[in-house]
Simulated assay, not measured.
Amino acid sequence: MKLTIYHNGQFWVGVIEECVDSKLTAMRFVFGTEPHDADVLDFLDRTILTLLTKPSKAVTVKTVVERVVNPKRLARIAAKEINTHGISTKAQEALRVQLEGNKQERQITSRQMKEAAQAKKREMAIHKAKQKHRGK
């Protein structure tokens, strides 16, 4: 599991990447203004569990066999990751797939609500017309 916190130009965003059985899932959390250490710790203690339990779409990735890394090389890799900004393209793809799924669900529910409102409006108009003609 990997947590990357970066500034997207407007807000601070945390991206959690989890790779299980060559399937990469990515979750996104918006911290808002610059998060303090206490905010990040609170996120790790409480909020991350709810994000990990939510169903999300996964993207298949190739697994790399990890070897023992020289400590100096490990320090260079850590410094490079600190200096780089953003998230991996596979995580971006996983987020995009998840956002598209959420968008489709939202479109379906809004369409159903709109149709129900139109049907209710039609029924009210019919009922009102019947009430007008009842006295004659």
Rank of each mutant, 00 (worst) to 15 (best):
K2L: 10
L3A: 02
I5H: 07
H7K: 09
H7C: 06
N8K: 02
N8H: 05
G9P: 05
G9L: 08
Q10H: 05
F11I: 06
W12Q: 01
V13Q: 00
V13G: 01
V13I: 13
G14D: 01
G14A: 09
I16N: 04
I16Y: 01
I16Q: 00
I16P: 02
E18R: 06
E18H: 11
C19G: 04
V20A: 08
V20M: 05
S22K: 07
L24P: 02
T25Q: 02
T25D: 01
A26D: 03
M27A: 03
M27C: 05
F29Q: 00
F29I: 00
V30D: 13
F31V: 08
G32P: 03
T33N: 14
E34Y: 03
D37T: 13
A38T: 08
D39Y: 06
V40M: 11
L41C: 08
L41E: 14
L41D: 06
L44S: 14
R46K: 14
R46G: 09
R46V: 14
T47N: 04
I48T: 09
L51W: 07
T53V: 09
T53N: 08
K54Q: 15
K54V: 08
K54T: 13
P55Q: 14
P55R: 01
K57Q: 12
K57H: 15
V59R: 01
K62M: 08
T63I: 11
T63Q: 13
V64G: 09
V65I: 14
V65D: 09
R67V: 11
V68M: 10
V69D: 10
V69L: 04
N70C: 09
R73V: 04
L74E: 13
L74C: 13
L74Y: 11
A75E: 12
R76P: 11
I77T: 11
A78I: 12
K80Y: 03
I82K: 01
N83K: 12
N83E: 13
N83Y: 04
N83G: 06
H85K: 12
G86A: 05
I87H: 01
S88L: 02
T89R: 04
K90N: 08
K90T: 02
A91T: 02
A91G: 09
Q92V: 09
L95F: 02
L95M: 00
L95C: 01
V97L: 12
E100M: 10
G101W: 07
N102V: 06
K103N: 08
R106G: 00
R106H: 07
R106M: 00
Q107D: 08
I108R: 09
R111Q: 12
K114F: 12
K114A: 12
A116N: 15
A119P: 04
A119D: 15
A119V: 02
K120W: 05
K120D: 12
E123Q: 06
M124D: 14
M124P: 05
A125M: 15
H127T: 07
K128V: 07
K128L: 14
K128G: 09
A129M: 07
K130A: 15
Q131V: 14
H133K: 11
G135D: 14
